[in-house]
Nucleic acid binder design. Sequence first.
DNA 1: CTGTTAGCGCATTCAT
DNA 2: ATGAATGCGCTAACAG
Lengths: 343, 343
Amino acid sequence: MKKNITIYDIAKEANVSPATVSRVLTGNERVKPITKEKVLAIIEKYNFRPNSLARSLLFKQSKMIGIILPDINHPFFSTLVLKIEAHALSLGYTTFLCNSMNDEQIESTYLHNLVDKQVDGIIFLGGRINQVETNHALAEEMNQIMDRVPVVFVNGEMEGVDTHIVQTDEIDGITKVVDLLNNLNHQKIAFLGGESGISSHELKYNAFQHAMKNNQLPLNPDWILAEGFEIASGEALASQLLTLKNRPTAIVCVNDFVAIGVIKTLEKFDLKVPEDISVVGFDDIYLAKDFPPGITSVSQNYDQLGRTAVDVLIKRINNELAEKKITVPTRLMVRNSCQQLRE
Amino acid sequence: MKKNITIYDIAKEANVSPATVSRVLTGNERVKPITKEKVLAIIEKYNFRPNSLARSLLFKQSKMIGIILPDINHPFFSTLVLKIEAHALSLGYTTFLCNSMNDEQIESTYLHNLVDKQVDGIIFLGGRINQVETNHALAEEMNQIMDRVPVVFVNGEMEGVDTHIVQTDEIDGITKVVDLLNNLNHQKIAFLGGESGISSHELKYNAFQHAMKNNQLPLNPDWILAEGFEIASGEALASQLLTLKNRPTAIVCVNDFVAIGVIKTLEKFDLKVPEDISVVGFDDIYLAKDFPPGITSVSQNYDQLGRTAVDVLIKRINNELAEKKITVPTRLMVRNSCQQLRE
DNA sequence: CTGTTAGCGCATTCAT
DNA sequence: ATGAATGCGCTAACAG
């Protein structure tokens, strides 16, 4: 294309040394106003911008933060990423987004890619850090990465990997949900969705069991069905649930997608939500309020979650101390998908 | 943190020159197997990985592609980005995502940021390239960017900016929609959503007018309402439409979000979709099939759109010829939100 | 087959 | 206040 213009070119045309150009660029040292004007004019003229690769090479910092996540297409992630990006940008960092498409291989590739590109830190969401049984090889890899660049986990952890964690208080979230349903007189409550071995499911499921016991509500194994986090999962699970003679009066879903699938299926079977059956989701994706009848859900506090992750990471980057594990509170968003049980 | 390990460290420990290490790294030149083994062992031992910043500086290519878009939170963009990223990755490029949050200022910041970071090319979606009235200053800026790095526009263009464009055949998409409704005997058809001055609206609106005329259907100005691309826009517009005594029997929406808002509102007014009124969307976001009753929509062929954009850009990066403007066909996804008009 | 050297673009010493 | 020299980590010439 076109020859790259450098500070040398600017210097030559301005009859100064490259060092002087560099000085006006950074503003770190004094330059005589006249000289400065002259240099600035040439810079303007050629629309010159310094090569940030060269800078990064010199400074050993790129001002880039890598983000690894399973799937940007999921509202939970896209919303969170947006918050992370905005906050990072306000702090002078650019973010580098990597979709692993839930593939451990791609995850590894990106992880190394980011290190190669000299990102200053990495925020890791979902994927391998979301597995209850830590895969040893993956943990090992993670540790190697952390030898080079600080990493923050969001909503996950790995056995044998000692890093900083920012997490949603999923347990408290589910507890609030069960309490709500209990207050609405529901006793027959189902828990649908998720996948055994995935911590964002296990955490919630355990919290569900606890909360049910605490409220002295019966746990019916027939009403505990796990089979994914997608809309289709919700549809499949609801269909399965409806084959039972003894049906629950309320359904807690592992996330909003599953809740959407469940609601769709219930309506298909001519069961009204919330009149015939109450449904609650989790995540409070932007659709929760727009999907009829408006889904009661647990908000993950995206903004706080994202900001905190960035703040912790940047502290680590600057070798400052940071809390090892920060838990972000949830907020129950009550909408129209559940109501008082009618006798 | 920890001292960065370089090829010099590897070289010293292996008793070879840095050049030799570099050779085994790139594999471009022959190295005696024994030597190679030895070097590889040390690399392995330290888990060494070459600094890609240094490489990029040398090669004057970063193997990075920048993507600028208004909002990753919108399914249209997140889906498209996913396709772009996957294809780019398969071709050895990493993508650098930038959300402008629909702010021209941020858009500019990112644009320059990407150039500074020496991306090899930029894919531009939405934002300034989506305005019918090109803003001169922004076009100027765009041209300056293009002096340094090739740019491909997706679904947009700017007056005075001569670049490569990949676009969805929105006109044909809308035409298909009107033809469909016409075949279902609808004559009273509304067009809702969008924003005057935004090309993704104007294009569709004009196509709508044409198609209506071609089918000899009447255009009722009361049924043409534009006020945004969001779910809330659809709700507002539908409410407005329903105040009329003379109501349409079918509604074409500028996109699926608007369609969702419209359907929500219709149901709220006890109008059944499609029994009482037919609704069609655009984009075929993943929700279209899941939002009751299943929204008939026009698919943008995300995969083809994304791949083509990447392919064109990479051709430009490699100074190969590429078609200046490529139009990607749409596909009508017929679902349950419209039906034959009952007399 | 391998070592030496130079340079990618920049900012920062150390001189002057 | 400014210029010359150096090095960040790497690879491609050029020698040997």
